[in-house]
Simulated assay, not measured.
Amino acid sequence: MLISSVSLSAILHGTLFTFGFQEAPLTAFHSGPQHSPYAMVLLPGLNEGPMALPWTTRIADAIAQRGWSTVQPTLSASFSGFGMSSLEHDTWELDMLMDHLVKLGKKHIMLVGHSTGK
């Protein structure tokens, strides 16, 4: 029986930035056309974070060809932080991310959640 495998090596070129409070900033990875007014925020599911999904690079490359950048935040609830916070807190962190993206010049922001993504 032949089992198809997904490559675990993937490369996205971009910028890692911080947002939120200076005392305890959160991070996000921004790839694709950095100065585009369009951004897709990719929110993975439980126990996941940036680059955790096998199709992350494919969707980021596909939307970059259409002029959209991809933003992958690491929230307090990402990876092993799941269960240590609340949906209300996640929403607050996403609100801070949206504010930051608007300051970067993003005028159209699309949220894409995977599985049980926020």
Rank of each mutant, 00 (worst) to 15 (best):
P50N: 03
G14N: 06
L8R: 11
V41C: 03
V6Q: 15
G49T: 01
S4V: 15
T18L: 07
E23H: 09
S36E: 02
H35K: 14
L16Y: 02
Q34A: 13
S4C: 13
E48W: 08
L46G: 04
E48K: 09
T18I: 05
H13R: 12
E23S: 10
H30T: 04
M40S: 07
T56A: 08
F21I: 10
H35V: 10
P54C: 12
V6I: 15
A28I: 00
N47Q: 12
L16C: 04
T57G: 12
F19A: 05
V6T: 15
Y38V: 08
T56E: 08
F19I: 06
L16E: 07
L53G: 01
L16S: 06
P50C: 04
G14S: 03
I11W: 09
L42R: 05
L53P: 00
L12N: 03
P25D: 00
P44W: 06
V41E: 00
P25Q: 00
P44V: 11
E48R: 12
G45M: 02
R58S: 15
G32D: 07
I3H: 09
Q34R: 11
T18V: 08
S36Y: 01
H35N: 15
P44C: 13
G32I: 03
S5W: 15
P33G: 02
L46Q: 04
S31Y: 04
F21E: 12
A10Q: 09
G20Q: 02
L16I: 05
T56W: 04
L8E: 14
A10R: 04
R58P: 08
P37R: 03
E48H: 13
S31D: 10
Q22R: 11
H30N: 08
L43H: 02
T15E: 13
P25K: 01
G14A: 03
Y38A: 09
A28R: 00
